[in-house]
Design a binder for these strands. Structure first.
Length: 430
DNA sequence: TCTGGGGTCCTTAGTCCA
DNA sequence: TCTGTGGACTAAGGACCC
């Protein structure tokens, strides 16, 4: 991990790039015949959500994170697509390469967003907006995709500037934005203070309600309050952070090569599961998926966490820390199952998740007692990794998953990015 | 209107130990 | 030996982001 090193210095040199309706735009690029139609990418089943909506779909009120069932009601004639995460990752890689061509100081936030620190490329000239426009032109020319770009004196203002540049949906159709918006040096507070406090990075529904109950509606209202009072009202860390942002201060550097803190896998089931026997194969499959990702990233973890969401949507987590870091499916499953056994699934479990945190570098791994006693499991994991590399993720999986008679389908992992793909079957095989 | 999956960070509370 | 304190660690939950 490395950082830009220099703190923000009042130079207009931070750029935020955000792809416009990324997943939907990538699909439209593949299927030009859908251009102009409302396109929705995401979970296609009853329990799925929208991952991305084209601006034509947004005209109908559809937005990301909306339940798919609601999106269908709002716009029954929209084209609903299941999404292709590996392909979006590939396209994202091409876009990030363009950004890294501008500066090595690129901090990806997700597949479709990144911060850049271009201060080193300015040579004392005020040309960051020009660089932003060049980025936009190159992404369009080389990838056939549009993006919006914000420019400011720090990361947070650059991100807000991007929002100003974005296309908007209106009842009469999409309104295309300026594409690039720069917040001039000295104009930060004028730009910031009229905004709703909810627009600040880090203010979600809960904090928004709390601030509103304190009479704080705009960013200017927040900036005018004493910092200590804000800290006492919403918590020390969040209070100090938001107060600084409201005053236009954000000292965070652009960080390249962020280290991963946890790796997990979770799934919402097409219908609720009520017994340990039903849950166990899913737990095994998820432990196997997490283990494979740990090994492919050459990391090990010490804390195993399971997440259980019941039918009434109450969600609990249980975690357990093992003495030595692990990356084997069997070891993860063992810990996870012990925790799951202590829970009562009879009210109905709609989601189950397994994750590993407290990650450490796996390239200098120490053998665990388990491995010293019998290295067969580690070898089996390595062989599985090799087979998956050659024949795909569904080619092989834990034996526990084939004994139920529903075979290879069980080995599919990570295919349910936005919820189960089809409505609950009326059969008894889950 | 029923709410995904991948994460990060913070807060609070309990325990252990020096 | 007992008590208080503070730090490190762990566990659980919540809020937030894309």
């Amino acid at each position: 991990m490395s950082t830009a090193g220099r703190p923000p210095d009042g130079t207009l040199g931070f750029i935020h790039v955000d792809m416009d309706a990324f997943f939907a735009s990538v699909e439209l690029r593949r299927r030009p015949e859908l251009k102009g139609q409302p396109v929705v990418v995401g979970g296609t089943g009853d329990r799925g959500v929208v991952a991305a909506a084209s601006y034509e779909a947004r005209v109908f009120g559809i937005h990301s994170a909306m339940p798919s069932t609601r999106a269908r009601r709002l716009c029954p004639h929209a084209v609903f697509l299941p999404g292709d995460h590996p392909h979006y990752g590939e396209v994202s890689g091409h876009v990030m390469a363009i950004l890294r061509d501008v500066t090595p100081l690129v901090e990806p936030l997700s597949l479709d967003e990144a911060f850049l620190d271009v201060r080193g490329a300015l040579h004392g000239e005020d040309r960051a907006p020009e660089i932003a426009a060049e980025i936009r032109d190159r992404v369009l020319a080389e990838q056939g995709l549009t993006c919006s770009v914000g420019v400011a004196t720090n990361k947070f203002l650059a991100k807000l500037a991007t929002e100003r540049a974005k296309p908007k949906a209106s009842p009469s159709g999409p309104i295309f934005g300026t594409g690039v918006h720069a917040v001039p040096v000295g104009g930060e507070l004028e730009f910031l203070h009229p905004m709703q406090v909810r627009e600040l990075w880090g203010v979600g529904p809960a904090t928004g309600r709390k601030l509103s109950s304190l009479g704080i509606e705009t960013v200017g209202d927040l900036a005018a309050q004493p910092r200590r009072w804000i800290e006492a009202s919403i918590g020390k860390a969040a209070g100090a952070h938001l107060h600084a942002l409201a005053n236009g201060r954000d000292d965070r550097p652009v960080i390249t090569g962020q280290e991963l803190k946890s790796i997990g896998h979770e799934e919402t089931f097409a219908r609720d599961l009520c017994t340990h026997e039903d849950l166990r194969p899913h737990l095994m499959r998820m432990a196997d998926a997490v283990a494979a990702r740990l090994r492919s990233g050459t990391v090990l973890g010490r804390t195993v966490t399971i997440k259980v969401r019941f039918s009434d949507f109450t969600t609990i987590t249980r975690s357990s820390t093992v003495p030595e870091p692990i990356d084997g499916a069997r070891a993860i499953a063992l810990e996870a199952e012990q925790m799951l056994r202590k829970l009562d699934p009879t009210p109905g479990v709609r989601l189950l998740g397994v994750s590993l945190s407290q990650l450490v570098d796996g390239s200098v791994r120490q053998l665990t007692l388990d491995e010293v006693a019998g290295p067969a499991w580690t070898e089996a994991d390595s062989v599985m990794d090799e087979i998956r590399d050659k024949f795909g993720s569904s080619a092989i999986g834990p034996a526990a998953l084939v004994s139920r008679g529903d075979g290879l389908r069980r080995f599919e992992v990570g295919q349910q990015q936005w919820g189960p793909s089809s409505p609950a079957p009326d059969t008894d095989d889950e």
